[in-house]
Design a protein around this nucleic acid. Structure first.
Lengths: 162, 162
DNA sequence: TCAATCCATACCGAAATGGTCCTATTTGAT
DNA sequence: ATCAAATAGGACCATTTCGGTATGGATTGA
């Protein structure tokens, strides 16, 4: 399945928790508890997000993490780029210069169109939107990630039928 | 990088070669030669494509493969679905029912929007378009795939700057 | 009967992934 | 000066996935 890695999914989750209360600094342990992920995994993600300048970190007692910019100014594309690298569905979609006949390749333009659409779709959604409470729901953002292993057999079959 | 697997990329390549001359039946060995891929790999892909009903196969002497439908009627999404499974950037984007709080999850709707955009982008491009010759080029479709390992260090740096 | 070609299955080394662990450093409080 | 809280950095590991190959069986036309 064409999909984000689990760690990127987790990273988006963590970022969405931070986006729900952007002024609040949260520790890695706190974020781990809120996302039901392992603390070492969350710590690892936060480090990369900090290196990618999507969060800012404060060391020492009372340290922690918070968003580096307003949730409206950070998109899902930003998170994906930091955690998975350049958004490019194939090498042809990203790179130029690596192939001697690319200037005459008819598929390349199409891959670039597809890639552009994907990038735009990811850029169209901000963390503010990800964290926004839905109408008729409990207060605050309740978000989750589902791992494939938790799907039962019937659900797999249902998915396959689409 | 959020990307298709190499095998899916190869599969799209193979399908595009078949699309260039949809009435012609080609053997796995022929397709391997035209795509500069290993014969066992191409054979493996063709089997899956046949199972996914994107190509039809004829056994025996003078056997081979050809598209199961007109190139205009097969999209990149079809190929991706057969080779990579359901198009779903996260489990949340594909599946419902696997999580007890999803009805109140604000992120899920956004993942579905993103997923829908990706699917539409892939569905918008047919094999006919992938195989179409470009203006000002040599005859016939010349297509290629670039593997990351072939990028030199300078190119990697250039990509990173985008 | 033979050659051409697809079908089916298994196997394997390499790479990637997800996760954990440990130590060093920084910071604020005492 | 010491301690606890918390980040920073790096290494390691088991598992899974991936890309690729090999082999034998079945089908088909000559």
């Amino acid at each position: 399945m064409l999909k984000l890695s689990k760690l990127t999914d987790y990273g988006t989750l963590v970022m969405t928790v931070l986006a729900a209360q952007p002024e609040t600094m949260r520790t890695a342990a706190d974020l781990a508890a809120r996302t039901h992920l392992g603390a070492p995994t969350v710590a690892k993600l936060l480090k990369r997000l900090a290196q990618g300048q999507l969060v800012e970190s404060i060391r020492g007692a009372h340290g922690g993490y918070r968003l580096a910019r307003a949730p409206e100014a950070i998109t899902v594309a930003d998170v994906v780029r930091v955690l998975e690298g350049q958004i490019g569905i194939t090498e042809c979609a990203v790179h130029s210069g690596g192939c001697g006949i690319e200037s005459s390749c008819s598929a390349r333009a199409n891959w670039r169109l597809i890639n552009s659409a994907i990038r735009h779709a990811l850029e169209a959604v901000t963390l503010a939107q990800m964290a926004a409470p839905m109408r008729g729901t409990k207060s605050g953002a309740q978000i989750h990630a589902v791992t494939l292993s938790r799907l039962n057999a019937a659900d797999r079959t249902a998915v396959g039928k689409v």
